[in-house]
Amino acid sequence: MALEHGGKTYETDEEGYLVNLSDWSEDLANEMAKADGAALGENHWEVINFLRDYYEEYQIAPAVRVLTKAVGKKLGKDKGTSKYLYELFPYGPAKQACKYAGLPKPTGCV
């Protein structure tokens, strides 16, 4: 599969995750969200940037449970709940946010 944007083609897997991490840009993230009928606001970006930082440091996308706990620690307790994260990313916070962040699907996420 592939994603067309700005006259360029980006390779994705069958679920729309970018194959090459280095292809990612904020622009592309907005494009992927638009295709899902979503619009990314400041709160989405907070989580997306958090995931990118996490990946940079640990080379994995965290499981939802880990993401929730870590977001609570980093961005404030009121945001470290699955309710908050599911409202932002209704297709599953780890799954959907990772896609927009240009990361592979979280390990163990089916």
Partner: peptide, 14 residues
């Protein structure tokens, strides 16, 4: 190849 050694540092989170 993938360098998975930094991932060991995430084990505490798990």
């Amino acid at each position: 190849s993938k360098n998975f050694s930094p991932t060991f540092k995430a084990l505490g989170d798990y």
